[in-house]
């Protein structure tokens, strides 16, 4: 696996180790005030990470049109379950349920969602952090651009 360093070069992850703790310990995701994007690591190896408060991500279409009774169209959740079902599961898990991935793109230094229903779920569930995918993906960026062109967005949380 490769990770991006502060200077843009790539750092190779040569091994991963697991440590079993004698007792469960509370762990927390990292959030950095004022920035949705941060570098973590040591001076010798600093990597780019995206671990973002969903409330700081903008919608690419008006979220006023999104409802709990809406359904998903693609992926594991396109089986009739609603956004409301996903919110309940996200609240229980404390994270987005398996099968839901939030894609977003950078627009004028703001993170803007491509899949607005998934962002809506994360916000309604009150999640503190979500993992964001697609930030370097041209097709996600193009989808966000097309949304913004039509919707007149971006839009803040409803």
């Amino acid at each position: 696996m490769e990770l991006k360093e502060l200077d843009g070069s790539l750092a190779l992850v040569s091994s991963v180790e697991f440590e079993r703790l004698p007792h469960p310990e509370a762990t927390y995701n990292l959030g950095v005030e004022g920035s949705h994007n941060y570098f973590a690591g040591t001076a010798a190896c600093t990597v780019l990470a995206h671990n973002t408060d969903p409330m700081s991500i903008l919608f690419s279409r008006d979220p006023a049109g999104i409802q709990a009774s809406d359904t998903f169209l693609h992926g594991d959740w396109a089986d009739g379950r609603t956004l409301g079902d996903a919110v309940r599961e996200a609240r229980t898990l404390g994270q987005l349920p398996e099968g839901l991935t939030l894609n977003a793109s950078w627009v004028n230094d703001e993170m803007v969602a491509a899949n607005n229903r998934t962002l809506w779920v994360a916000q309604q569930a009150g999640l503190q952090n979500v993992s964001v995918a697609g930030l370097e993906n041209d097709s996600v960026a193009d989808q966000v651009a097309k949304h913004l062109r039509r919707s007149g967005g971006p839009f803040c949380a409803p």
Binding site: W106, V107, N108, D109, D138, A141, A145
Partner: peptide, 12 residues
């Protein structure tokens, strides 16, 4: 090019 520089500057 417009999509590639969206992060810095985007005009719908």
């Amino acid at each position: 090019q417009i999509v590639a520089r969206m992060k810095q500057r985007f005009s719908a």
